[in-house]
Write a protein that binds this DNA or RNA. Structure first.
Lengths: 110, 110
DNA sequence: TGGCTTTTTGGCTATATTGCCAAATATGGA
DNA sequence: TCCATATTTGGCAATATAGCCAAAAAGCCA
């Protein structure tokens, strides 16, 4: 196995792993209906707020969701519409991360 | 959240979780090309045979792969063609498990 | 039978994940 | 400013996961 292939597999695995939890899967489905704040999701899931917040952090770090702080609340939404077309979505996430990285790189040398 | 929804989410999560590892993702892709025995995969992955065997067990228990013992070797293959159409695949796996369960139930009462 | 190959299992350690509580942080409003 | 609300962070304990080695199990062939 090549090193580049390993890295690619690890990147995919990171995203898929982030989806591999019932509460996070629920969050993804719910965000498929529209943006939600942390307490909304917490009420639906029925766990501690801090737990839900950490799940959201996992999803954010995997590049699956985006957050938007408005006033007191933080609204989360899907970064890419993942639910129906998943493996394509893994690629979309990776691609948009690559885009972001190259934007960042371009910004730094500007 | 309803109990049935929870169970459904947990079932999905189990399958996705099984895919959330680089070596297992590699195995899935490789099996997408055709059946492979354990040593074939082990050589490609470059880990201990026992490690690869355990990854295959995880995939098997998740309903992602099937095994077929022929003589000395065990050949693994995908149970459903997952790679392109993933979320549909989650459902296919679940459905085929349901089918299997109802077959089993029918068998037991026969 | 005995030896070789292939695969699985048991056991162990290291590491990661999950979930809670408590505390910190941030924001808006009285 | 002070308080209430919303969210995140730190810390901890319980549990799960990953990887290796050694050993067991199963099949083939001489």
């Amino acid at each position: 196995m090549y090193q580049t292939q390993k890295a690619h597999l690890a990147a995919r695995a990171r995203i898929i792993k982030a989806m591999g939890h019932p509460s996070r899967l629920f969050i993804i489905e719910e965000l498929g209906r529209g943006e939600r704040c942390v307490l909304d999701l917490t009420a639906m899931i029925g766990a501690d707020v801090s737990t839900v917040s950490k799940h959201l952090t996992v999803l954010k770090q995997a590049g699956i969701v985006l957050d938007d702080k408005r006033g007191n609340q933080v609204f989360y939404r899907l970064r890419v519409p993942c639910i129906l077309n998943f493996f394509g979505c893994v690629e979309s996430v990776l691609e948009s991360q690559r885009r972001e990285h190259s934007e960042l790189a371009a910004y730094c040398t500007r």
